[in-house]
Nucleic acid binder design. Structure first.
Lengths: 196, 196
DNA sequence: CTTCAGGAATGAAGTAGATTAGGAAAAGAA
DNA sequence: TTCTTTTCCTAATCTACTTCATTCCTGAAG
């Protein structure tokens, strides 16, 4: 499947599109290849685009006071990534977004997205649904952080996203789940051992 | 200002509406009075509506394994509240939503919202923007929970929402910020003392 | 006025998870 | 291959925060 087909297919999971609408939608995106460790978003610059991952993986993070990094979002195939606070309000970003592997992305600029939404009600609906899904996703993450222990959060994560749990290095998972890499190491090895 | 004017005014902060469109928008809502401690959403029932607060205050929370409650969302005048995971996907709720004071709400059912979005592109835009703002808001909360200590989270909260910080009982604020009421008490009293 | 319930304060003891510091593997790069 | 960098592990110590237990405070209801 080529990139255009993939993004059209994806969009059709949320809204029905004619072939013509599909093409119109896909035409708003631009393919972008990024190499491992390349940044696509950096603090103080406004995030002009959001990105859809065709293949590869990325990570959004912020740097805390004492230099530790905290993973805000992860993305693999068929996920979106950006600094949304920056993208939505077109304000300077706080986050880094970096490629974890050589990746192929579809870039959608804020302008192109606006144009799409103006052109066709269905595209507006699409982005509304996308945002609502993010809300639901983030709410689950907030609930998890409020109600669960580090170990429970990790188990839930592995259960829901087994592919991610081994694709990203451990320090990334740990900082995504809000714990240190040392502690995650402990949890992982406790889980394996019990062969009594 | 009457309830209709308030909600129209509110909507106009996000999208321009003619007087006629404003009326059409407001007509989709139904006023609802709730008394302190009354539930408007309960686990296992599907959240049929979302609510806009005209006056009063509400709180959404989940009950953890050991019976502690965790505040997921707070709402005062001009805020919205519901169990969004339930509302958006029309699935059984996990949360309680309860009135903290006698309150006056505008209820918008899922059906009425759908009708609005179908009738006029502008309403679809409105709800898209609402969802995007939630995304940004929740992202900030996630960042705060990952990067800040209990004390820092509280200080940020007081700074951004000073009105809420004293309107809600302390145990509510504490469980919203992810700490115990005892610990918040300690933080508060440390902050006041230093008169050296 | 009491009585009672919801909420807040305080302090002692316990613990989940962080920090620190060491080194061992993987995995790239040369 | 060898060198370098990145990632992971182990274990001891430390601390931010929880738990538990008790007392205090306030306002509303009788």
């Amino acid at each position: 499947m080529n990139p255009q087909e993939i993004i059209i297919n994806y969009a059709r999971k949320l809204v029905p599109l004619t072939d013509e609408e599909g093409e119109q939608f896909a035409a708003a995106f631009k393919e972008q290849r990024v190499k491992k460790r390349q940044f696509i978003i950096q603090p103080d610059f406004t995030a002009k685009s959001r990105y859809f991952v065709l293949n590869g993986s990325l990570r959004a993070y912020v740097i805390g006071e004492e230099g530790q990094d905290h993973t805000i979002q992860l993305a693999v195939e068929e996920w979106w990534i950006s600094d949304y606070n920056s993208y939505i309000f077109q304000q300077p970003a706080r986050m880094f977004v970096i490629a974890m592997e050589d990746s192929l992305l579809l870039q959608l600029t804020h302008e192109q997205e606006s144009r799409l939404k103006d052109e066709n009600h269905k595209f507006e609906t699409f982005f509304r649904m996308l945002a609502e899904r993010s809300v639901a996703f983030m709410q689950r993450r907030i609930i998890s952080s409020l109600t669960q222990s580090a170990e429970e959060r990790y188990e839930l994560f592995v259960e829901k996203y087994p592919a991610m749990a081994y694709r990203f290095p451990q320090y990334v998972i740990a900082s995504y789940l809000g714990m240190t890499t040392e502690f995650l190491s402990k949890i992982r090895n406790q889980r394996v051992k019990p062969k009594s």
